[in-house]
Design a protein around this nucleic acid. Structure first.
Lengths: 130, 130
DNA sequence: TTTGAATTGTTATAATATAACATTATGTAA
DNA sequence: TTACATAATGTTATATTATAACAATTCAAA
């Protein structure tokens, strides 16, 4: 059994907020929402975000500068992520496909190089927006 | 035969700079480098970048907020991109793998949804940095 | 129980990106 | 050619995202 990371106070506050959010949250929106809990400065937010990303509790959607909670229980570490993003409503969903992750984890470039980590973002229209 | 986009003056200046650069360039570094050519404001740079991305002449490396020229002649439009990024020296290489692009273009999520566009970033250590 | 690493708090500032509006150039159809 | 629409440009101001630097505190392991 893995040792679970015990979140610190700031990390827990910020994780809870992101985890409850139905959509990716941006850093300054997080800041605004946690100010009543005593987190007053951007750096406090960014530090917690960095740590949460590092331990795999949240992921960063790079093309949107936003963060979502990981619901893929096997993500102990952020090393292989895939998302679908609706270009109209901006809904983001984490993709968990054994086939996809296997394919990408084993992908070799033309020099035979394999990679330890990847991030994939698919774009299109979600069901509602088609 | 496709109609090639004729680049405007600003677009051409900025494309040439990125195209000559051995590494991804950031917007404000581009701005600094083209000021002697009369491009003085961030917006002039961002507008040219947006257009160049749109027509597939350059790609944005989302995780780095940086831009590289596309050397994949089939990229008329930016819709399917894959890169490898060295986590030490930050060298970025565009991956062109028929197998990979075919796999991703045909990927369906568990709802059977296909996507029109994707961006994939692999991370690891390049040959020099291993 | 001290010591070393991680976390926190705080102020200031750097880096990235867009809003709004006026003007100029370019292509296309009458 | 004219005139209309579209795209590109120039400019100022500002919004958004992220980090530097340093002091203080917490907390677990030796």
């Amino acid at each position: 059994m893995h040792k679970e990371h015990t979140l610190t106070k700031n990390q827990q506050i910020i994780f809870d907020l992101i985890d409850k959010s139905p959509e990716p949250m941006k850093a300054y929106s997080i800041l605004f929402n946690v100010q009543k809990k005593g987190i007053k400065a951007p750096l406090q937010v960014y530090r917690a975000l960095d740590k949460l990303v590092e331990i795999g509790k949240i992921h960063k959607i790079e093309s949107r500068n936003a963060f979502i909670a990981c619901h893929n229980s096997s993500c102990r570490v952020a090393k292989a992520t895939a998302f679908s993003i609706c270009e109209i409503c901006e809904k983001v969903t984490e993709i968990s496909s054994a086939g996809l992750s296997k394919y990408l984890a084993n992908f070799k470039d033309k020099d035979g190089m394999k990679y330890s980590k990847y991030n994939l973002e698919f774009f299109g229209l979600c069901k509602k927006c088609r």
